[in-house]
């Protein structure tokens, strides 16, 4: 009984994860090998695809990797700071106002971005932040703020009221209380927010495509799109590119997978 369950599980998982295997294995093959035996192990093992995308492709890979790393980390910091501040300070408002704010946050959480992309773009243009990484980061911060706030609020509930009251009696103001008491408590929740918003921001395609344009540089996803647009690509290089741009999130996930799932559950309002 147990072995049957193990067998079925492994068999289904292999089928399910087969596309991942394909991408990975083919990134180490020569072009002919890919076309003739896509599913097998490499007949001749090669790193050429990886070397090629670093050497040619107009620095597309190195450029997009650096850009993505920078703007993803900045977006994460913005989301962390702003949403933890909001989650903490909302606490002191009346129930009614809290609820109104939460309805708006929920609206933001379920909002498909294409709906607001045009006005966001005009607003950023108005303040001269269109086509800049700062503009994009601000937008991501705003867009993922509801998620961060909901996760942090879940953790805030566990903080005893007395603890906060006590700090105020000791003469602390809101900022001191936030920095000294709340931030340390929110640390485990931060891990969830970091890994989840990080993954979302890293993987996002449409927003950087529209809000960033081509001149400011590219992100990993837009870089992939550009690479495919160039007719001279071959499959091996495409696969290698996909492996490299997915690796950072995959590694982050493997190390922080516990927080990932906790965060998703917390963010879903449970």
């Amino acid at each position: 009984m147990f072995y049957r369950q193990v067998f079925i599980s492994i068999f289904l998982s292999i089928i399910f994860l087969f596309p991942l295997y394909l991408v990975f294995v083919n990134s180490f093959k020569f072009e002919n090998d890919i076309l003739n035996n896509p599913a097998s192990f490499p007949e001749l093992f090669t790193f050429n695809n990886y070397i090629n995308i670093f050497v040619k492709s107009n620095d597309l890979l190195s450029n997009s990797l650096t850009n993505s790393i920078i703007f993803t980390s900045l977006s994460i910091i913005f989301v962390l700071v702003l949403s933890s501040m909001l989650a903490f300070s909302i606490h002191f408002l009346s129930k009614k106002i809290q609820n109104i704010i939460f309805i708006f946050l929920l609206l933001g959480l379920i909002l498909p971005t294409p709906i607001i992309l045009i006005p966001v773009f005009t607003i950023l243009k108005f303040v001269n932040l269109n086509n800049t990484f700062i503009g994009l980061i601000l937008f991501f911060a705003a867009y993922y703020l509801p998620f961060g706030t909901l996760v942090f609020r879940g953790f805030m509930k566990n903080i005893p009221k007395e603890m906060i009251e006590a700090s105020f009696i000791d003469g602390a103001n809101f900022i001191v209380c936030y920095l000294k008491i709340i931030l340390p408590i929110l640390k485990p929740a931060s891990a969830s927010v970091i890994i989840i918003t990080g993954t979302w921001v890293w993987n996002d395609f449409l927003n950087p495509l529209i809000l960033l344009g081509p001149l400011e540089g590219t992100t990993v996803t837009v870089g992939l799109y550009r690479m495919v647009g160039q007719y001279s690509i071959n499959f091996g290089e495409l696969y290698a590119f996909m492996v490299l741009i997915s690796l950072p999130v995959l590694i982050a996930y493997l190390f922080l997978q516990k927080y990932f799932i906790e965060g998703l559950l917390a963010g879903s309002g449970k």
Binding site: F88, I90, F92, G108, I115, V120, L138, N173, F174
Partner: peptide, 30 residues
């Protein structure tokens, strides 16, 4: 909370302002 709690507004406003300008206001603009 009263109007003197400047520190409180420093905490609550950045998130709300950013969220309103880049999410809520765009919905109105749409």
């Amino acid at each position: 909370i009263n109007k003197k709690n400047l520190d409180y507004f420093l905490l609550i406003s950045p998130g709300l302002i950013l969220f309103s300008t880049l999410i809520i206001f765009p919905i109105c603009l749409t």
